[in-house]
C-alpha cells in the first residue's frame, strides 16, 4: 500500500433501536483489512453504544457490545468519546466498557482504547481526516 489515509468513523446513534451501530461496526472491522490510520468517534447517543452491562437476553436481540472489545485485535486502537455528550446524558467514563488494545511493540502491554475528548478537540480531529464515515 503506497499511502495511508486517515479514516474516521463517527457513531451518533444508540444501539439496538436501529441497525446503524452494528452495520457501522462491521464496516470498521472490514475496513481494518486495508491498514489505514483508523479512529472511531462516539458522540450524541452514540456514546450509549459503549455503555457497560448491556444484556439482551430478555429482549431477544443480539448483544453486539462484546464485539467492541475485538477492535484492538483489528488494530483499531483510538476510540474518541465526546465529554459533552457523556455529560448531557448523566454518564461518566466509569459507565463505559473498559476497552483495551495490546501493544505488540511494547511487550503486548494492555493500553486503554477509549479517550475522552472535548467537542473542541473533536472538531480539530475531524478537520485532519482524509475520509469520514457517519453512522
Amino acid at each position: 500500500m503506497s499511502e495511508t489515509k486517515k479514516f474516521m468513523y463517527i457513531n451518533r446513534r444508540p444501539p439496538y433501536g436501529t441497525v446503524y451501530p452494528l452495520e457501522g461496526l462491521e464496516v470498521v472491522l472490514i475496513g481494518a483489512a486495508f491498514e489505514q490510520e483508523v479512529c472511531m468517534v462516539f458522540i450524541s447517543d452514540g456514546v450509549f453504544q459503549l455503555r457497560q452491562g448491556q444484556d439482551t437476553i430478555d429482549s431477544g436481540m443480539k448483544n453486539f457490545s462484546p464485539t467492541y472489545r475485538a477492535l484492538g485485535d483489528y488494530e483499531v486502537t483510538r476510540l474518541y468519546v465526546e465529554r459533552e455528550s457523556l455529560e448531557e446524558r448523566g454518564l461518566t467514563e466509569a459507565d463505559l466498557m473498559p476497552l483495551t488494545w495490546e501493544d505488540e511493540d511494547d511487550d503486548w502491554a494492555e493500553k486503554p482504547s477509549i479517550q475522552i475528548v472535548s467537542r473542541a478537540q473533536l472538531s480539530d480531529l475531524l478537520e485532519e481526516q482524509d475520509v469520514v464515515f457517519n453512522f
Binding site: 444508540p14 444501539p15 439496538y16 450509549f48 455503555r51 457497560q52 452491562g53 448491556q54 444484556d55 439482551t56 437476553i57 430478555d58 429482549s59 436481540m61 448483544n63 457490545s65 448531557e88 446524558r89 448523566g90
Partner: peptide, 30 residues
C-alpha cells in the same frame, strides 16, 4: 435516565402521569 439534560421534563410529569419503562429494553442498553 436521571441526571440528564432531559430529566427535568419527565420528572415534572411523574406527579400527574404514571410513567413506565420496559425492563428488557433497559437491560439490553445497560
Amino acid at each position: 435516565l436521571a441526571g440528564t439534560i432531559h430529566t427535568a421534563m419527565l420528572a415534572q410529569a411523574t406527579g400527574t402521569i404514571s410513567v413506565y419503562a420496559l425492563g428488557p429494553d433497559l437491560k439490553a442498553r445497560g
